[in-house]
Design a binder for these strands. Structure first.
Length: 264
DNA sequence: GGGTACCTGCGT
DNA sequence: ACGCAGGTACCC
């Protein structure tokens, strides 16, 4: 599932191919992309140069020459494929951008949940989105103040993109494990020191997703390699810190995995 | 705060 | 053949 780290890595791979290129055509290949991007918006985007690709949370912003933007969101399993424009489309291609150098960027998305939308210059396409987790201005005190306004389970609050941008189901569970915080803890009962620990844990969990795969990383209690998960999806397996069986519960129709031994 | 829709592959 | 998974928008 693409969360902040996977989206960031996808953008880094894509940038060399699209920055500076002109969009020659946009093909909408599925009802989902036809709904999100009507013909008038396709016409507005075609012919423009892509100046840059930026990320906000899990959103990808294609900055076009006239100041408007195409904004992509991978949702559950979107990804980019880059290839020659005359090659067969990849399986599950839902949208294709033809570039002026003969290449084609395809949005590959089996479940067709991903969206690409167009936004006029001056419009904020990500209004209401919370701070970036790695923004140095996002301090533990600000994080704690945001949590203090919420009574819901911390697991749900971490997923709320208005509180923090880019954390999804996987990294929320991972961060709570790193911080030793129980997922059902009411957010407003997390004090300054635990908030600071949790913000560090969010950053650690996201960093591991951004890291070179297979790199060894260590905490005080554990050693693991990057992209190895501590709790997510490990129902019934032993906790890597204390050995207790990882449990799975459901929060608002979404699985949460945690260790009852070391998350309080 | 919960419920539903969107969509398709996959596990059962 | 059935039903679940999941991020977000939109319903109340």
């Amino acid at each position: 599932m693409p969360e902040l780290p996977e989206v960031e890595l996808a953008i880094r791979r894509l940038r060399p191919f699209v920055e500076g290129r002109v969009l020659r055509a946009v093909a909408r290949l599925h009802p989902s992309t036809r709904r999100a991007l009507p013909p008038a918006h396709v016409r507005a985007a075609v012919g423009q140069r892509v100046l840059a690709v930026a990320r906000r949370g899990k959103y990808q912003l294609f900055e076009l020459a006239r100041g408007d933007r195409l904004v992509a969101h991978f949702r559950l399993d979107g990804d980019w494929n880059v290839g020659p424009a005359d090659a067969p489309l990849p399986r599950y291609a839902r949208l294709a951008l033809a570039l002026d150098d003969g290449r084609r960027v395809s949005l590959v998305d089996p479940r067709a949940f991903a969206t690409v939308t167009w936004h006029r210059a001056g419009e904020d396409p990500v209004a209401g989105l919370g701070p970036e987790p790695f923004d140095p201005g996002f301090t533990p005190a600000r994080f704690r103040a945001a949590l203090a306004r919420r009574r819901a389970a911390i697991k749900l609050v971490l997923l709320d993109q208005r509180v923090l941008a880019g954390v999804g189901n996987i990294y929320a569970a991972e961060a709570l494990w790193h911080a030793g915080v129980h997922p059902d803890t009411p957010a407003d009962r997390i004090g300054p020191s635990r908030a600071a620990r949790l913000l560090d844990a969010v950053r650690l969990a996201l960093s591991r997703g951004l890291d070179e795969p297979g790199r060894v990383f260590a905490t005080a209690q554990t050693t693991a390699t990057t992209h190895e998960l501590m709790v997510y999806g490990r129902d019934g397996e032993p906790c890597r810190r204390c050995g207790r069986r990882i449990r799975r519960v459901v929060h608002g129709a979404r699985g949460t995995w945690y260790c009852a031994g070391c998350q309080r």
